[in-house]
Every structure is written in C-alpha cells, then in structure tokens.
Design a protein around this nucleic acid. Structure first.
Length: 656
RNA sequence: GCCGGCGUAGCUCAAUGGCAGAGCACUGGUUUUGUAAACCAGCGGUUGCGAGUUCGAAUCUCGCCGCCGGCUCCA
C-alpha cells in the first residue's frame, strides 16, 4: 500500500503501483471522467503514471490552467501525425504550447504547407480523434536498437537530425528518454498528455509562419504551423469571436475608416495624420503637458539632429547604431557636374536622434546646478527616429518616427525613491483617465550589453526594488532585460479586450551624467554627479493613440473624440439655423460641424454613426420654430428635442 | 533582415494568357429630404516599380519596393 496527500490535506491509501487515474476513480467516477492529468509533487504528469508513496497529488481537470497546456501539447502531436500522413517527407522538430495555442516547427525544404492545406490536415486529425487512440508513454534508453527508438525512427525516415540533436541534449543533461505514441504515431516527447485522442475534438489550425531551428537565422529554415485547442466547442468559438473582435478593432483599419491617419509606401513606418488624427494627437499631448506642469516639470525643445561625436559620448553609437539614421551628402562631381557622388561623408557627420536624453544632458550642463533645484524635471515631447527592420513595422505600434512624452529627472541619490514613487502614482493616474486601470509592472535588470560598473548597477536595481516593495506593488522580474545604461521599471496595461501593452517606462541611469560631465553643487559645497531618471508615460504618443483606438474600438469618449458633434439639417432650408447652433457649440468649446450635404437625414445619421461621432443634432422645422435642438447620442440613441442649454449642461453628465 | 502570403480606381474586391470591370467614395444634376444607404449621369487606371518569356502579360519568370502573418517560448 502507498499513501498520497490530496490538496485539501487529506491522505488517501492506494495499492502499490496505483496511478493518478486510479486515485481519481477512487475519489469519484465523475472525477475520473473529467481528469486530464495530475500534478505530482509540483510536476504535471500523465494520469497513467504510477504514484510514488507519500506524494502530494492533485488531479487536474479542464478548469486548471495546466490542463489546457496538456491538451494543447497533445493537439500538437495530433497535428504532427496528420501532417506526416499528408506530407510524408516532413521532418518534425519541436512542437510546444504557446499563449493561445500550440505550434509545430517542421522541416520540409521542398514543399510548402499553406492555409489551403488546413482542411486536409484537419480532416486527417478528425479521423485520429475519432479513433480515440490512447497516448502511451514509452521509456527508452539511448541505444538506437531500443524498440521505441526504432519505431520512432521509422516515423520520419530516420534522417531527422533535429530530433537527433534533441536526443543528444537529453543524454547530456542525463534526463530520461521518453517517446509518446498514439496509434501508429510516435514522437520524442517529455509529456504529459491527455489520456487519449478523443479529448482533441476542439482543435483548429490557425496560421503558418517561418521560423528557424533553435531560433537561429543562420540555421535551417522551418515551417511553423500554428493551431489552437480547447476543451469545449464554446471555448473554441469564443476564441475565434475574440480574434474577430480584435480584427474589427485593428487600429490600422479604423485609422482609415475614421480618417485618423494613413501610411504611404514612400514613407514606410512614418504615419501621416489626417486632421482628425492630429486632433487626437494634440489632445493627448495637451493632456500630458497639463499634468507635467502641475508636477513642476519644465518643458524644453532640443534638436532632431546632433553630431555623431555626441552619440559616441552618450554610448548610443556603440549600443544603438543599427537603429539610427545617419546623414550622408550627395554632391555633384567637381569635374563632371552631371555626375552625382552618392553617400559622401560630411566632415562632421551628424545623426538623427533615436532618444532625447543627450539633448537634455547638453541642456543641463550649460550652467551650474545646485541641489536646491532638485529634483529637476525636464520634459519634452521629443520626436525620435529609429530604423526598424522592414518585417517588424506595424501600423502605429511599430514605426520609424514617433513622439516620446519624454522627461529626465536630475536628483540626488537619496531623492531616487521619492521620484520613483511619485512617477508610479502619476502614471497610474494618467492611464486611469483613459479607463486603463489594469496595470502591471515589470522590473528589468542588467543586460549583457551594458555600460557602467557592476556596483552601480546593483545600487540602481536595489533602489527600484526597494521602492516597489515599500509601495507594496507586485511586479514581475525580467533578468537581463534592462536598457544598456540602467535598470528599468515598465508599465504594462490591459485594454478592453484584456490584451497587454507596454507603455510607460522608468529607467535609472548612473552612467550618462558622468559621461557628459554633469555636476551639481551639494549641501557640502562640493561638486557631485547627479542621478538621472529617464521616464515616459505614454511611451510613444502615436503608439498610445493606436492602443486607444483599439481599446475604444474607435468610439472615443467625448473629450477625445476628434469631432464631438455633427449637426444635420433636415434640408437646405435649415442651413442658417444649423450654422447658428454650430456657432454656439463651437463658442462653448465643442468640436462641432454642420453636414451641409444634400442627403437624406437617414443617410447622414448612418454616416455620423459609422464615424462614431458622439452626438448628432438633427435640425428641421420644429426645432427652428421652437429654437431647440434634437439630439441623438452615439451610445444612447435618440435623446429627442431639447433646449440647447440643456444639451450643453447635460454633456458634462453624459460624457461619463 | 529571414520565411510564407499578398500588391488591380481613394476604399472593398472581380477579371488566370486574348478589349481592365463592379459597388462605395468623389463630381454634376434631379430631389428639399425627420433618425443607419433617394434617383440619374459623369470622373476615375503606365494593374506597386523594372526587366524577361510570348503574336499577345493584371495573369507566366526574375529582380527591387511596399503591405500582411510570423521569426522569445526549445522533446
């Protein structure tokens, strides 16, 4: 007999060699039916595995997050089996679980797997599901003569050097070599898996993409087939509904439909803003500037271009060169004026700024500072340019030029915690103003490519940790993810679809002030090097705008709506009255216009709705006679006829 | 940058080797309109750019540019 401990603390006696499946059955038949896998001493294993005496055991059902991973990993095997049946030359590599599904990387240099193949693959998968093959764990040794090893090698021809490499790694680490088989298919795998293939009814392939063996661009190119799996049809359908909803909110699509911005192939990664988009951009900037002024920031403007020399001083040249735009001249040849010499170096080469900090450092050092001015907060809506690889550009989210709501705090070492604490509260308040209240914080530490000495890094990291802990804020630690000049705190916010976006950042810098020779006169009358804090709340104004477009699905709250009211005269006869009302609305401070087009009211209402304008005001004979307005709200439908003053006073309330 | 897919009117898309088309938008007209699409007409194109194959290329081939999906997850 063995005894195992259940999550509720109780013990259960089982016969020797009993499995988690036996345990589940001994608890209840119902549990046995829904059991997916088991957690034994903290590790997720198959239900069929024999339980060790004295183990802590938890039966996992579809309600447990780990169970979904097990299901999806099994689905990856299922897909691999089906793909091998259709593409016999395919060589399997790895097939892990990812956030919203799974993938399998496949080496198949002479053939392409495309979404057109999905129906075939899925049909094959359905057959295997129907057969209900049990997943069987097969333990092998490293002798290739082993039965399972042999069977496995027969699966993809025995020439699969990728799996051989993996087996080598397992051997080197001294781990157990296991295969999992279902039906005739067998694959190198650590497991665990669901009991049998009939669990995999709700599986769908989603996309194909390229990848590399070991994520190394120098190695073999693989084809990555993505899929997802759920325990129920409903969950699978909900997932696709979510994707559909996200697609409808795509800021690139809404950006065109709502006339906010556009891209042109002659300016890749450089967005153009239409008047409506520019309005939102300015609203975001004005909102931020007001908040900065209230907190004692000083707004400055620094140049877009600095000498290359300055970028050597700052360390950007060495650490960020690939992402910078450099200036080169084109000169007519002195001998042959028709010839143009390309890419001529300037005597003093210049570079476009990818960050604002050097400019702020140069500004700081123009005069002597006292500790009495500290903390000194210098802010700039700084336009920066960063070269990005062509394949990574994406709408407003990844561009080559954007405006940072950037600021640098100069302070004494003992002011650091106060500044960090202030910033955390400040940033959360800003996000809250947009209804973005789900914020989580990550702390990133020293990367491989770093400047400054190790002791300084440790001090900086400790300062950030202590502040977070003293404020009792939960955070995630990302080792090695810091900026090259210092550790940082990043703010991640979840939008209305629960998607996470990184926005704000607070970065400590104990290096750059020294590189630029910055000093302040301390209370002791001596010169000291100030501490510098880099910080941005939106991060990029343009990107933040993209996030807001998706968060609100283009239906901006009144204060952010580029056009707040559109007036719709019932016919041309009421144009004058419409102009009069519009003038009053504009006078009141609203962004309002009249739709003078010769269309039916219904058509104009439709257009106003599609443009997601918060209020449409219909004006006709009745309203003109009575001196009233007839209001339709985007969110609440028709509000009916009312006095203009009532509309205006109601707006304060309605906009919430 | 790499892999896969794609690029036709401002937008969404059709035409698969044989005369470049439709709807919306836009312009003009009719209509004078009452809460999600009135009617008629017109304008709109070097089919991303450049070479090649062909009697003939939007369509096939090659190169370039751009866009879309991926490229952290290690059985």
């Amino acid at each position: 007999m063995i005894s195992v401990k259940l999550p509720d603390g109780s013990a259960k006696e089982l016969s020797d060699g009993a499995s988690a499946a036996d345990l589940a059955k001994s608890i209840s038949d119902g549990l046995a039916r829904v059991a997916v896998a088991a957690k034994v001493n903290g590790a997720v294993v198959d239900l069929q595995r024999a339980l060790p005496d004295g183990a802590d055991v938890q039966i996992l059902t579809k309600k447990d997050a780990e169970a979904l991973d097990v299901l999806r990993h099994s689905a990856a095997h299922l897909m691999a089996d089906a793909i091998l049946r259709i593409f016999p030359k395919a060589q399997l590599t790895i097939g892990p679980v990812v956030d919203d599904g799974f993938y399998y990387d496949i080496y198949l240099p002479d053939q392409k797997i495309t979404p057109d193949d999905f129906p075939k693959i899925e049909a094959e998968m359905a057959k295997i599901v129907k057969a209900g093959h049990p997943f069987v764990r097969c333990v092998s040794d490293f002798n290739e003569a082993n039965e399972f090893y042999q069977r496995y090698k027969a699966i993809d021809g025995g020439h699969n050097k990728f799996k051989q490499e993996l087996v080598g790694g397992i051997k080197d680490r001294g781990e157990e070599l296991t295969f999992y088989k279902h039906g005739d298919f067998i694959d190198l795998c650590r497991g665990p898996h669901v009991p049998d293939t009939s669990w995999l009814k709700h599986v769908k392939l989603t996309k194909v993409a390229g990848s590399y063996w070991r994520a190394d661009a120098e190695r073999e190119q693989l084809q990555r087939v993505y899929g997802t799996a759920f325990f129920s049809k409903n969950e699978l359908e909900d997932y696709f509904k979510f994707l559909e909803e996200a697609r409808k909110r795509d800021h690139r699509v809404l950006g065109e439909q709502l006339e906010l911005f556009f891209m042109d192939e002659d300016a890749p990664g450089f967005p153009f803003f239409y008047p409506k988009g520019a309005t939102i951009w300015h609203l975001l900037v004005d909102f931020m500037l007001g908040n900065l002024r209230r907190r004692g920031y000083h707004e400055v403007k620094t140049p877009l271009v600095l000498s290359e020399h300055m970028w050597h001083t700052s360390g950007h040249y060495d650490n960020y060169m690939e992402n910078m735009f450099f200036t080169k001249m084109k000169l007519r040849d002195e001998e042959r004026p028709e010839k143009v010499n390309e890419n001529v170096d300037e005597e003093r080469p210049m570079a476009v700024k990818p960050m604002n900090c050097p400019g702020h450092l140069m500004l700081y050092r123009t005069r002597l500072h006292s500790h009495n001015e500290f903390p000194l907060r210098i802010a700039e809506m700084g336009l920066v340019h960063r070269r990005e690889l062509s394949g990574v550009r994406h709408g407003l989210f990844r561009v080559q030029a954007f405006t940072q709501d950037d600021a640098h705090h100069f302070c004494t070492p003992d002011q650091i915690k106060g500044e960090i604490g202030m910033l955390i509260d400040f940033f959360k308040e800003i996000y809250g103003a947009f209804g973005l209240t789900d914020v989580h914080i990550e702390l990133s530490t020293k990367p491989e490519k770093a400047i400054g000495d190790a002791g300084v890094w440790e001090k900086a990291e400790a300062a950030l940790k202590e502040t977070l802990e003293e404020k009792d804020i939960e955070y995630q630690l990302n080792e090695g993810d810091g900026a090259f000049y210092g550790p940082k705190i990043d703010f991640h916010i979840r939008d209305s679809l629960k998607r996470s976006w990184q926005c704000g950042t607070i970065q400590l810098d104990f290096s750059m002030p020294a590189r630029f020779g910055l000093v302040y006169i301390g209370a002791d009358g001596q010169r000291h090097t100030p501490v510098m804090i880099h910080r941005a709340c939106y991060g990029s104004v343009e990107r933040f705008m993209g996030i807001l477009i998706e968060h609100f699905a283009g239906a901006f709250p009144l204060w952010l709506a580029p056009l707040q009211v559109q007036i719709i005269p019932v016919s041309e006869k009421f144009s004058e009255y419409a102009k009069l009302i519009n003038a009053k609305l504009v006078e009141f401070g609203l962004r309002s216009e009249v739709n003078f087009k010769d269309d039916r009211v219904g058509y104009k209402i439709r257009e106003a709705s599609l443009q997601k304008i918060p209020y449409a005001i219909v004006l006709g004979e009745k309203e003109q006679e009575a001196g009233t307005v007839n209001v339709r709200s985007r969110d609440k439908g028709e509000l009916g006829e009312m006095q203009l003053d009532n509309f205006l006073s109601g707006i304060e309330e309605w906009k919430k």
